[in-house]
Design a protein around this nucleic acid. Structure first.
Lengths: 212, 212
DNA sequence: AGTCTATTCTTGTTGAACAATCCATGCTAG
DNA sequence: CTAGCATGGATTGTTCAACAAGAATAGACT
């Protein structure tokens, strides 16, 4: 088995699960021991995660879990608007990715009904990843996936990832329906408004939590 | 001095300068000796470059310079269209980034006059990076920069990076003028056509060179 | 020729070691 | 008492040597 790549996955899982909290310092010695790998191997994984934006690396000061501040959140939503809206606007009809979106919405509904908000958050990520897959661009999906993972850390930071997602289950549905039944550009417009509202919600949570 | 980060820069420079040709295998032992660093340090740099898409890493088979094939080129231009057009479309008037674009166009003209096509290529990259900076998004610039660097490798692969850029000096100028004097959306439309033509040129060169 | 196998080379990973830098502590001087 | 300064301890940066593991090559055999 290839240790290093699965180590990245392992770390990523813990990061987006919130086990390694935003801002937490990641000691090389401690983590190497915990995951039973050498420091060198761990450092290679750190470089990957650093390039993905999930951890922050300051020379001689070590690696810490990314802890997006207000301007990071704003930047992330800038990216989301540019990429998601552009992709949806130019999406062809009858793209297979739409099926994945539909499934995500479906799962989100049942998860919301069960009050499993953590799951709703995960499925929400899946929905928007599926949306970007309408572009048929692996590079766009990769970059977007990184940004979305970073946003997940922002949610974790203010610890309100649950009800923040609540109103957006329905709006995902609307965006999908508009794309399917009306037009891509109409859907893109709705998505733009969606993202604006979502951004405001997150920034509001930041303000309440007194985060910068 | 921080070896590792400057090592990444060093390698990046050699890659986009074409000293390390696309597809070339990068032996750990050889490169470690050449740059006078340890294998471990070099491997950390490799992980960063791999995440940026500049090198390809296959487990147990080592690292080689990325060698974009036809579908990679197509994917890269998909990303360019989505990002560049969206950014330009939504760009505010009087953004300071426009000044950088202007300077790039200027430099490109004089470099073209001096038949320094390699420099024209570099400046062309600067122009489009400046264009994306109109988004004020550091993440978008970072992702886009990676994709553009990868495209540079595509040019190097077919060894025609010189005159491929020739017709586009003038079109950069047009896009900039349209953005400044007319409207962002008119400029975005021109840019879209620009990118379509550019893509066709590159794919044509690939076909001529018999590359897949 | 084709395939199997043995050898060889490269990468994957480790542990230990030391240098370089940061950080916290306590001290000194003003 | 505070501002700086020295000191020591901890962490990261980097190297090296070694071995395990997988891949590539060459040769033997059918």
């Amino acid at each position: 088995m290839n240790h290093e790549s699965s180590l990245v996955n392992l770390l990523t899982d813990r990061l987006i699960a919130g086990e390694l909290r935003p801002g937490a310092r990641l000691s090389e010695a401690a983590l190497a021991k915990e995951f039973d790998v050498s420091r060198n191997t761990l450092r290679e994984a750190f470089r990957v995660l650093g390039e993905q934006g999930l951890v922050n690396h300051i020379p001689h000061r070590g690696v810490s879990v990314a802890s997006p501040n207000t301007s990071d959140v704003i930047d992330i939503y800038r990216v989301r608007r540019h990429i998601e809206c552009s992709v949806l606007e130019n999406a062809p009809k009858n793209h297979p990715g739409a099926e994945q979106m539909r499934r995500a919405v479906e799962t989100a509904h049942s998860a919301a009904a069960a009050d499993d908000w953590l799951r709703v958050g995960t499925v929400n990520m899946a929905f928007h990843n599926a949306l970007v897959s309408l572009s048929d661009s692996t590079r766009l999906m990769r970059s977007f996936g990184n940004v979305l993972a970073e946003l997940r850390l922002a949610f974790l930071k203010v610890e309100v990832l649950d009800f923040l997602h609540a109103p957006f289950v329905e709006r995902n549905q609307e965006v999908l329906d508009t794309y399917l039944d009306e037009s891509p550009s109409a859907a893109a417009a709705k998505l733009g408004a969606y993202l604006g509202d979502s951004e405001r919600q997150v920034l509001g949570a930041y303000a309440r939590a007194g985060q910068d």
